[in-house]
Write a protein that binds this DNA or RNA. Structure first.
Length: 441
RNA sequence: CACCCUAUCGUCCAGUGGCCUAGGACACUCCCCUUUCACGGGAGUAACACGGGUUCGAAUCCCGUUAGGGUGGCCA
């Protein structure tokens, strides 16, 4: 039987990283086994359940690159994939339980009468667990339907997993304790329960539960901050699972190849945004320029930065790329290449571009650059160093004023590369402004 | 309160009875490289929760304690 996994989020208005990881592991497992990954939206009658909230989920999964084979926007043979549209199916399953005598009414709600037995769950991750459900006091009967006719999660989730022929239910450990009750439902419906795999939860660094407001909890903040989806996938797959051999940077393809449910940890993981940040930096560093530009484009456009030719943008991105670790910071690194209205960083100006000495040095550098016949990084470096020798000062004392004059900032890519790209005319103009600024200050 | 899961550096993982005076990565500190900031390289701080067993031998197996997490909803 071919593997079918599913991710079944409820639209709460955000896609939680924990949910994103659950989705990722389901997706990985399906891909590994050439199976089917189903997306089902658990939107049973909720007030918070808006169109926008559903989009957040879909957008998040799209961004992470977790394409589903069946579900919203995609269709499939086991739909509909919104629980709000599956009422007739639930009615049908409910009547089957009714006929078999498993149900009773309680204050208008419909409840399932537990057989009161011991139930064994063979979990792919947690192993064999025996639950004793014989005591109604500690394990009350499941409610399946409210008096107003709306459905309860436990019931519809089981029905859908049967109907959608889910073979592996991979979900958070918070569902483990209710699993034996689900198993009772499967049996009462004459269905074979799927394989279960309960994954450890993701907590905060301090071990507390991650709430919506905690930093990094909402997946939507990652694209905004300028993380690469492949980097976030990498980080998430390392939470509760390991490729062994002390590997950290690993492609999704390799994760799929190496992944196995029985190697998933049983211990809750703490979320560490620092590490995610580092991994992102590694990806950005090694990324080819085409992909980098693709990811960078929205941030540049949003900042109102425009570039004359793709070649010019490419040259700039090439030298700036190793410096930027979050794409949202990219505009401030590249803006000086594409504007004539330079904004100066006050601290950098105060440090390197203030006073007659700085002005005089820049003047000398400007003169030697003005007489330069070849405008390339190597020549620019030679020229600057010669000027420094003539002035009897260290290279850095020329470099810093020049950098601020040319870019407005105290930090940036290699100075000579910057100056080469900027071009002689603009550089000399900026030197002039810098000299005036330093002398006047 | 009951039941379930878990317990290795601050964090994520490696470790499935001897190879462990416990390894890698992030973070942190220091050094080197260097025109800045990064990157890179090197060094360092830092952990088997506790107590009993089992065994020639335990981070690894068993029991207990403690701690954390989860479930016990007519939330999902």
């Amino acid at each position: 039987m071919s593997v079918r996994t599913r991710f079944a989020p409820s639209p709460t208005g955000l896609l939680h990283v924990g949910g994103a990881r659950t989705a990722l592991f389901n997706w990985i497992y399906a891909r590994k086994n050439a199976g089917t990954f189903v997306l089902r939206i658990e939107d049973t009658d909720h007030t918070r359940n808006t169109e926008q909230a559903k989009e957040v989920i879909l957008d998040g999964l799209h961004w992470l690159g977790l394409d589903w084979d069946e579900g919203p926007q995609k269709g499939g043979n086991h739909g509909p994939y919104y629980q709000s549209e599956r009422g007739a199916i639930y009615e049908d399953y409910l009547s089957r339980l009714e006929k078999a005598g498993h149900l009773y009414e309680d204050n208008g709600a419909i409840r399932f009468r537990s057989p009161r037995e011991k139930v064994v769950v063979e979990d792919e991750i947690c192993g064999r667990i025996e639950f004793d459900l014989t005591n109604p006091g500690t394990h009350p009967d499941l409610t399946l339907r409210r008096p107003d006719g709306s459905w309860i999660f436990h019931f519809v989730s089981v029905v859908d997993d049967i109907e959608m022929k889910i073979t592996h239910v991979i979900r958070g450990e918070d569902h483990l304790s209710n699993t034996p009750k689900h198993v009772e439902l499967y049996k009462a419906l004459g269905a074979v329960p799927p394989r279960f795999a309960h994954m450890p939860l993701i907590l905060n660094r301090d071990g507390s539960k991650m709430s919506k407001r905690d930093e990094g909890a909402a997946l939507g903040t990652y694209p905004e901050a300028g993380y690469a989806p492949e980097a976030v996938r990498n980080y998430l797959s390392l939470l509760g699972w390991s490729p062994k051999e002390n590997r950290e940077i690993i492609s999704t393809e390799e994760v799929i190849a190496l992944f196995n449910l029985d190697q998933v940890n049983r211990r809750n993981a703490a979320f560490d945004l620092d590490k995610c940040f580092w991994i992102n930096g590694q990806y950005l560093l090694q990324m080819d320029l085409a992909r980098y530009a693709e990811l960078a484009m929205p941030f540049l456009e949003k900042a109102g930065i425009s570039w004359p030719t793709w070649e010019s943008l490419e040259r700039v991105l090439t030298i700036v790329k190793p410096k930027v670790k979050l794409l949202k910071d990219l505009p401030e690194w590249v803006v000086c290449f594409f504007t004539e209205e330079l904004t100066y960083d006050d601290a950098a100006v105060a440090k390197s571009l203030t006073g007659e000495t700085a002005a005089e040095r820049l003047r000398k550098l400007s003169d030697s650059y003005a007489s330069l016949t070849s405008w390339d990084a190597a020549s620019l470096e030679v020229s600057l160093k010669e000027t420094a020798v003539k002035l009897g000062i260290k290279t850095g004392e020329l470099v810093h004023p020049a950098r601020v004059a040319v870019s407005g900032r105290g930090i940036g890519p290699g100075l000579y590369e910057m100056i080469e790209i900027l071009g002689k005319e603009r550089v000399l103009t900026r030197f002039g402004k810098g000299i005036a600024k330093a002398a006047g200050a």
